[in-house]
Write a protein that binds this DNA or RNA. Structure first.
Length: 446
RNA sequence: GUGGGUAUAGCUCAGUUGGUUAGAGCGCUAGAUUGUGGUUCUAGAGGUCGCCGGUUCAACUCCGGUUACUCACCCCA
């Protein structure tokens, strides 16, 4: 049969996994340093946990898992008859693959509230699935790396998350711009423009500014039913570059004023911290997700045009739908695939990101193969990453394998080496070769 | 959900206005070379030209349909 994998999914070669792990490990180190604890949730959630959380569009993008057994016998016959797929789903599928890490986290918090300490700081690095049409840099299966705090309103946490972004990206060697804003400021804008009821429409349009430009945003807002005069007001406010200028413009809006105060508080916390990257107040930052209620943040790589490589914000009541009121949360997410792509484009992976084989042993015949195997065990015991070619086949074949593995040193074992208890250590780059005792080889590598 | 592109050897791809036996590079196997790789050279294995149908004396090539993948849009990371 012809091999294949589902669309929007990928295989990862050893080199890619090593590099991805480098990214994950860097993040973990920082997360742990800031006191965040790891959790994991199942790949599958109850479909009822997921549906309705991501809007109508989101529901369509949920992967549903078909019930086991004779699922048709319990199927909704009317829906089946009418070929109404939407309606049929609930009777033949009770589980779905998780769409993000935030909603499962909310569910997790409510279910495990007796076992966790609040405020609860967690990080989570796991794949998520979306039944979206794939395109460049967008897949149906991809990793999300989320850091969230639930159970505290403190704006210190916003500042802390900005620091985490700053530290992770500087450790990864990526120059980034961290853009922050506050949803309440956007709400204030809508209020000032007299279109408080059209906040979502306005937000969705503004969010596209980078992509479709000022004119495009104007067009989109008008198409979404925002009057010309309101659009004029909004456009004027969008020109603002700093909080002080903004203050009088939103003075009549309680929400807007609160948003400015909150954002100012975040900046004040960060006064004592020396940023490695650029931190900007960006009034045009909106972010798509509707559950954000306060602080919002997005990260873009400076030297490569790859879109957003991370984002997040505060959501006042995420756990409410699961029956736990007044649990404020704030969190950010790292887009692993895009960070990988950005680092690849800039060639900024350090050599140690690849855990390479240090030494390959090669034997000429059965007897020396046994001898090499003994040496191998001692080398490994000394902590050297070593391997013996499994069969004493032709040298050419074994050397070819060594080239393929990109191993820097090969140790050859034959009659001569066996008789004087050595190995012939060969540098694959220079071609130099020298007879060395096992002790000398171990010393050489350690 | 809407629109475009592609589908030929294990992989990446050529294939002329439709014409005899469908090619290249890489990879694989063997040899030149019984203790030495990256460069060479020689030979070999490997194909339902995505699938179904139509046009034609003749289809990898043209037409219709279909499936898969992919790119862009909507939305999103």
């Amino acid at each position: 049969m012809k091999p294949g994998i589902p669309k929007g999914t990928r295989d990862f070669l050893p080199k890619e996994v090593a590099r991805r792990n480098f990214i994950f490990n860097t993040m973990r180190t920082v997360f742990v340093k800031y006191g965040y604890q790891p959790i994991e949730t199942p790949a599958m959630e109850n479909l009822s946990t997921l549906t309705g959380k991501y809007g109508e569009e989101g529901d369509k993008l949920l992967f549903k898992v078909l019930n086991n057994g004779d699922f048709l016998s319990k199927a909704d016959e009317q829906a089946l008859e009418a070929k109404d797929s939407q309606k049929l789903v609930s009777s033949i599928s009770k589980r779905g693959l998780r769409y993000d890490l935030t909603v499962p986290f909310a569910r997790f918090v409510v279910m495990n509230q007796n076992d966790i300490n609040f405020p609860f700081k967690r990080y989570q690095i796991q794949p998520v699935w979306r039944a979206d049409r794939p395109q460049k840099g967008r897949y149906q299966e991809f990793y999300q790396c989320d850091v969230d705090v639930v159970g505290s309103n403190s704006l210190m946490l916003e500042a802390e998350l900005v620091q985490i972004y700053d530290e992770v990206f500087s450790k990864l060697g990526l120059d980034v711009t961290i853009k922050i804003n506050n949803r309440k400021i956007l709400a204030g804008m809508a209020e000032a423009a007299g279109i408080a009821d059209k906040l979502v429409e306005m937000t969705v349009a503004i969010d596209k500014l980078d992509k479709i430009g000022k004119e495009g945003v104007r067009k989109e807002m008008i198409e979404r039913g925002i009057p010309d005069t309101a659009v004029d007001t909004i456009e004027k406010i969008l020109e603002v570059k700093d909080l002080d200028t903004l203050k009088p413009l939103l003075a009549n809006s309680e929400q807007g004023t609160k948003g400015i105060e909150e954002l100012q508080a975040v900046f004040d916390f960060l006064d004592s911290y020396q940023m490695n990257n650029t931190l900007n107040f960006e009034i045009t930052l909106a972010r798509g997700l509707s559950y954000y209620t306060g602080f919002i943040v997005e990260v873009a790589a400076d030297k490569v045009d790859i879109g957003s490589i991370g984002g997040g914000g505060r959501y006042d009541d995420l756990t409410g739908i699961f029956g736990m009121k007044d649990m404020s949360g704030v969190g950010v997410s790292f887009g692993a695939a895009r960070i990988y792509d950005a680092m690849t484009a800039l060639d900024s992976f350090p050599a140690e990101a690849e855990e390479n084989l240090q030494l390959l042993l090669i034997a000429f015949d059965e007897a020396s193969h046994r001898y090499a195997f003994k040496c191998l065990n001692q080398l490994r015991a000394a902590g050297i990453v070593a391997e013996l070619y499994p069969d004493p086949v032709k040298l050419k074949k074994q050397m070819k394998y060594a080239n393929g593995r990109e191993v820097k040193f090969v140790a050859l074992a034959g009659d001569t080496e066996m008789s004087n208890n050595t190995l012939a250590l060969k540098n694959m780059e220079t071609g130099d070769q020298e007879q060395k005792s096992l002790e000398d080889i171990i010393k050489f590598f350690t």
